[in-house]
């Protein structure tokens, strides 16, 4: 089979490009340590969320010195808790599940983004920096009022977080 020399050059360059792309993604996984939403959490009965230990009361819980877990429920057409309040400079793991249809959970303008599928729990861990306010949007069409489905993520200073908590922020 006759292949022109230039085309061979291009073929080689194309393969190198593909390897470079795969290498970049692999670097992102091992360097900065970016992990994918995966199957680590076991399946859940979406009809039984109201009795579930984690999701019957959607909330943020401290589980280590600077480690927090946020149990979030998405349902037509909002997120609970709202707002989600977490301290700055901490490690926060979001556990997000749906009570009804497929939703999205996206902290707008950041890398925190996952599908929310009924029957599954999406788990993503992020590291917060300085205090900031972010919007949370449902980025998967979920029904007639989908465009109204939003929430808030508030990253507050440690003292404000502790203060809010003592003040009985019972979200």
């Amino acid at each position: 089979m006759h292949i022109h020399a230039y085309e061979k050059v291009w073929l080689a360059a194309s393969v190198l490009l593909i390897l470079f792309l795969l290498g970049s993604v692999t670097y992102g996984a091992v360097g900065p340590g970016i992990a994918m939403v995966s199957d680590g959490e076991s399946a859940i009965d979406p009809g039984g969320i109201d009795e579930d230990e984690r999701f019957s009361e959607p909330r943020v819980e401290q589980v280590g010195e600077t480690e927090y877990e946020a149990y979030v429920v998405a349902r037509q057409f909002g997120f609970q808790p709202d707002p989600i309040v977490v301290p700055a400079n901490s490690t926060v793991t979001f556990y997000v599940t749906s009570a009804d249809v497929i939703h999205g959970f996206e902290v707008a303008g950041t890398n925190a983004n996952t599908m929310v599928v009924p029957g599954e729990v999406a788990e993503i861990t992020v590291e917060t920096d300085a205090p900031a306010e972010y919007g949370i949007v449902c980025n998967e069409y979920c029904g007639a009022a989908h465009h109204g489905m939003e929430g808030k993520l508030e990253v507050v200073s440690q003292s404000e977080f502790d203060g809010g908590r003592n003040g009985g922020d019972g979200e």
């Binding site: 994918m36 939403v37 929310v116």
Partner: peptide, 10 residues
């Protein structure tokens, strides 16, 4: 298309 789906292994 399902990179961000829970319930599918990495």
């Amino acid at each position: 298309h399902q990179y961000l789906d829970p319930g599918i292994a990495e």
